[in-house]
Amino acid sequence: MNKNMRHFAIVAVLVLIGAVIMNKLLISVLPLPTPSSAQAESVDSLFRLHMALISLFFSLIVVFVVYAIVIFRARKGDESDGEYIHGNTTLEIVWTVIPLAIVIYLGFLGTKALGEVTQAQPNEKVIQVTGFQWDWRFEYPEEGITSTTLVLPKGQPIRLEMQSEDVIHSFFIPEFRVKQDLVPGHVTTLRITPTRTGGFVLRCAELCGLSHAYMLADVQVLEPAEYDAWVAEQTSQTELPPAELGAKIAETQGCQGCHSLDGSPSAGPTWKGLFGREETLADGSTVVVDEDYLRESILDPHAKIVEGFQPIMPTDYGEKLSDEEITAIIEFIKTLE
């Protein structure tokens, strides 16, 4: 038994040394990107605690096993048996109860940190995120901006309300740490408070088909004053000539997902040469495309369905778009001869 005690004392020292080395190693081979959100702080401190525990328990088992291999290896030709030890109930209880206490404590810390990264903040700014194969769109309801770049003011708590138009996507910016899927038919929420200015990349983290690897969007975190300037620049775009404004609105609304600009077939009629064209409707009647027809088709798309197409166009553009914006889109269509 004395001999065993000496072994245990040596092993205990080695376990501690091993744990420190392992922890250094893990932190150097697992380089987290620079934390850039308030949420990242809660996540990272828990991350470091986990790394320390991984190092300690890894060292505990590995040092014991390696030490045993060196000390207890059978010498050449030794066919004898080892010590006849069946087990030790006290030890079994100890190494059941201590890990149990540790995981319960970890669960408690996890719950606390989860609260920190998901709780509602005062003065949240809402941004609506839409994911579709294979791109992103961001709408700022307060400012009335639609953008393909996610621009955020530093220090401002943000609530992202996220929807998918087709399959499951996932919102992930490594520097912000948090992640949330976008699920068709659901609105999911994610909270971010950016703490560092600069450019980041939003990447889809849920396999969503062919070009999943390239489903990216630029993210800009700006100082509040710069952000205000960006908002002003975006909103002043209503001063654009109507046809150009219409083209921009059509792009951000994703109109070209179903209506091509070059005459190629798609889910909806092409816009090329649409204005002034005579269309045959599903009921056999014909109509000449004019401004009134286009306006009606945007506001109440199922009123007149062109032959060969399905009534699948969303019916809520009347709520999404202002009168001026609809006029702008019509002006844009007029230019597509």
Binding site: I61, V65, A68, F72, G82, I85, L91, E92
Partner: peptide, 20 residues
């Protein structure tokens, strides 16, 4: 982690003092 830990500790207990 708890029953998995029991396995690891028991393996170490088996190796310890054996003729490997």
């Amino acid at each position: 982690a708890v029953p998995t830990g029991v396995k690891f500790f028991s393996w170490v207990g088996t190796i310890w003092g054996g003729k490997l």
